[in-house]
Computed example of a mutant assay.
Amino acid sequence: MNARILALHGGLLALLLVLHFVLPVYHHGNLARIMVLACYAIGYNLLFGYTGLLSLGHAMFFAAGMYGMGMPFHHLGLGAELAFLAGIGTAGALALVVGLLALRTLGVAFMIVTLMFSQAFYLMILLAARWTRGDEGLVLAGADRVLFGLDLTDPDIRYLLALGLFALCLSAALWLVRRPFGRVLVAIRENPERAELLGYDIFRHKLAAVVVSGMFSGAAGAAYGLMFGYVGASFAEVHFSIFPLLWVLLGGAGTVIGPFFGVLFMFYLIDISSGLTPAYMLIAGVALVLLTLFAPQGLAGEVRRRWLRWLP
């Protein structure tokens, strides 16, 4: 792999590690959340940015990972390690089923079908209130949130585990998009007819992209629930499917590093503007419109277009 690419992505991880020792408490906690959510955005980017499939239902995979972890953890006393794997497995299985059905459609129809599946999943969470606690959600006992002997209620441990998960997702995404599989996904995005003419199985590659994307998102959901001790239906709502789309567009669709900067930018844009006025969404909306107008390829996308052509 190109040394410049490794240096750039490794430099970001090194910077995040250094920030662990110097950030004030408030920003330290924020950055831990941002890194977990960035894993969710990376998963979405694999489907949208690299494969060209616009989903409006990705919250169901994030929530599937969260509830797939949280319910056996809360009700069955399953250990955090196995519960985390159960969350990823649940999200992957759901992504496989949804992919097999939704990929029978194209374009806008795919977007609508994924939205419908997501809404059905959200309603299922509410209707199964006996186990999910409905709108109240599940509060995971702090004393039980121990992963490989590490106390997840400790902010320092939580930050380092969030960094570890982000490093794993970032590295896996970088490896995937630079492998032949990733090149085929880009070919499908650019010209599916030509890719099919070259002998590639379009449906199989799209299905694999949906499953991998769902597992990334499920890992983020399971980690979020474990680290912050709450599993709630709000994470399955429509707006939580819109967020990753905005994060990827702002950071740069089709760039490995872009989703992180999209999450970081939007998180602090809302955080800062909410401290200035109750109409903070108006400020956030104006800023997003300006960024879209003057940096249409997103933050990392514009950097790639203007200066770093080799940026993956």
Rank of each mutant, 00 (worst) to 15 (best):
N2T: 09
L8G: 10
H9V: 01
H9T: 00
G10I: 00
G11E: 05
L16T: 02
L19Q: 05
L19M: 10
P24R: 12
P24T: 10
L31M: 01
M35H: 12
V36Y: 11
Y40I: 00
G43K: 02
Y44S: 10
G49V: 04
G49D: 06
Y50S: 09
L53M: 13
M71I: 15
P72E: 11
H75I: 12
L76E: 01
L94I: 14
L96E: 04
V98S: 13
V98T: 11
G99W: 04
L100Q: 01
L101Y: 08
L101W: 11
T105H: 09
L115E: 09
M116E: 04
M124V: 13
I125K: 04
A128P: 02
W131D: 03
W131M: 07
T132E: 07
R133V: 13
R133F: 15
L140R: 05
G142T: 09
V146E: 13
L147F: 00
F148Y: 09
L150G: 02
P155R: 03
I157D: 03
Y159T: 10
Y159L: 12
G164F: 14
S171M: 01
S171H: 00
R178N: 15
P180A: 13
R183Q: 12
V184D: 07
L185W: 00
L185C: 00
V186R: 15
R194W: 05
E196H: 10
L197W: 00
G199Q: 04
D201M: 04
H205Y: 15
K206E: 10
S213M: 02
M215F: 05
F216G: 13
A220P: 06
G225P: 05
M227E: 09
F228N: 10
F240W: 08
L245Y: 07
G252T: 06
V256C: 01
P259T: 14
F261Q: 08
G262Q: 13
L264I: 08
M266V: 11
F267T: 09
I270Q: 11
D271V: 09
S273T: 13
S274K: 00
G275K: 14
G275I: 07
M281L: 10
L282S: 06
L282R: 01
A284W: 03
A284P: 01
L291K: 04
L291Q: 05
L299S: 03
E302Y: 10
R309A: 13
W310Q: 06
